[in-house]
Structure formats: structure tokens, C-alpha cells
């Protein structure tokens, strides 16, 4: 399974980059590399809280920061940004930002659940302890909502969009700085 994920992500990344090069979409290539920077900044920051497992050793770049997962998130962010910018060319910046964020979350949340379910990602005890709602589900498990359904803490439904919002803001800000009219 890990080999399949690694191959899939690499193919997706190369396909995406190839499409940008063929279409001479310099802005999309810039978005891609800015996304790599934004995601890596976050991944190094969250390194103590999140463990990435079961990938081949050559995919790890620092502790358990796995560049395959980094590329996966980057593809999601870049593809969403490019699609929304292309489809909603005349829309305002806020609308484009929110649509991009929605598109990212539609892909990122299931991806996170998938990774946790198959053991590719685990969370540190400290992170789980900080999740108050998740802890109360565990403590008050009365069979109403089977706790085993909680593959990721319910707080992640909110925190994952918020985190991607910060990464997207980072990317959009630097796009503005790079393309700022002088």
C-alpha cells in the first residue's frame, strides 16, 4: 500500500508540473513551489505532534517528515488554486480564496482520515490530550456514537480547514509580493 501511495503521489506531482510547463503557466509553477515552502514550514513545526509511518526510508527528509505526504498536500493546494483561478477568473479575491479552501478541504479531510485509518499517520498523546471534545467522547462512551468511528478527533473538522487557511494565506501573500506591480 505504501508503494502505491508513493508512486501515485509522484505521478500526480509530475503530471501537474508537466501540465503547467506545457501550458507555460508560470504562475501555477510559482504557486507549486510556494506551497512546498508553506507545507514544509508547517510539517517541521508539527513534527513532534504527528508521526508519519510505514513509508519507505528514502521518503523521510527530517525525523518523520515524509516528502511524499508533503507533495500530496502541495498537489491538493496547487490543483485547487489553479482550478479556482481558472474557473472564477472574474470573481473577487475573497470568493476565490474561500472556494479554493473548500476545494482543498474536500480533498484533505478524507486524505487525513485515510492516512490515520491505515496507520500511515498517528498523533502524539499530547495532541490527543489537547483535544477536549475527543477526550470527552472517550470518557463518556455510552455506545451512542461508537468511539471506534472517531478515526480523527472531531476538532480536526475545524482545525484542518483553519491550518490550510494559514498555508493558503502564506502562498497568496507571496504570490502578491512576487507579482506586485512596481
Amino acid at each position: 500500500m505504501n508503494t502505491k501511495i508513493e508512486v501515485l503521489v509522484i505521478i500526480a506531482t509530475l503530471t501537474l508540473l508537466g501540465l503547467f510547463v506545457i501550458n507555460r503557466n508560470k504562475r501555477a509553477i510559482v504557486t507549486f513551489f510556494l506551497s512546498i515552502l508553506g507545507v514544509l514550514l508547517f510539517e517541521f513545526l508539527f513534527d513532534p505532534l504527528v508521526m508519519n509511518n510505514k513509508f519507505h526510508s528514502w521518503t523521510y527528509i527530517f525525523h518523520d517528515v515524509c516528502f511524499i505526504l508533503t507533495l500530496g498536500w502541495v498537489c491538493i493546494i496547487t490543483a485547487s488554486s489553479v482550478i479556482v483561478n481558472f474557473t472564477f477568473k472574474r470573481s473577487g479575491e475573497l470568493k476565490k480564496f474561500l472556494l479554493t479552501l473548500c476545494m482543498i478541504d474536500v480533498m484533505a479531510l478524507p486524505a487525513e482520515v485515510f492516512l490515520v485509518y491505515y496507520g500511515f499517520r498517528t498523533y502524539s498523546p499530547g495532541l490527543l490530550k489537547a483535544m477536549g471534545i475527543y477526550q470527552s467522547f472517550l470518557e463518556h462512551d455510552n455506545g451512542l456514537i461508537p468511539v471506534k468511528w472517531l478515526i480523527v478527533p472531531p476538532e480536526f473538522i475545524v482545525s484542518i480547514p483553519l491550518l490550510f487557511g494559514l498555508i493558503l494565506s502564506f502562498v497568496k501573500y507571496w504570490e502578491y509580493v512576487i507579482y506586485e506591480k512596481k
Binding site: 517541521f44 473577487g92 475573497l94 474561500l98 487557511g165 498555508i167 494565506s169 502564506f170 501573500y173 507571496w174
Partner: peptide, 25 residues
Amino acid sequence: LYYIPVFMILIICTARYWNRMELKI
């Protein structure tokens, strides 16, 4: 020396981006 500047980068970028954005849909 890594954690604090990274925290600041993400907050400052977010603030400066949203400050420029017109909040109209």
C-alpha cells in the same frame, strides 16, 4: 530560532494578505 520565526511568518503573511483583500464576495 526555528519555531518562533515560523510562527511569525505564518501569522504575518496571513495578516498582510487579508489586510489587502477586499472583504466582498
